[in-house]
Amino acid sequence: MADYLNSYLFIGAILFTLGAFGVLVRRNIIVVLLSVELMLQGVNLSLGAFSTFYHDMGGYMLVLLSLAIAAAEAVVGLAILVALSRHVDEFYVDRLKSLRW
């Protein structure tokens, strides 16, 4: 098991980095939200790997918690998106800046 830990962590790090990259460079809000989910899953994967490695169910509990929260967060985020879609035509983050100073 110990041999595989690094590969799990590696994949988790790749997922997280891909997500972070997506959040930073993609302009479409839906894709940005998807990328946030990707980052989350990267972290969850690492947590699961550690949990198995240390024979401690705490890690999986944390994963379940974060999944629940992520689901709630996705609901709120999508609801905002739906509301937003009634006012604007383009879902591009760099266009949506009317709330700055």
């Binding site: 972070a20 959040v23 930073l24 940005v32 983050v93 760099d94 800046k97 709330l99 700055r100």
Partner: peptide, 17 residues
């Protein structure tokens, strides 16, 4: 000071990261 606040979400994320 307010020039920092671009309104671009991704700028903020970059700074945070």
């Amino acid at each position: 000071g307010r020039r920092v606040q671009t309104g671009q979400v991704q700028n903020y994320v970059l700074i945070m990261a």
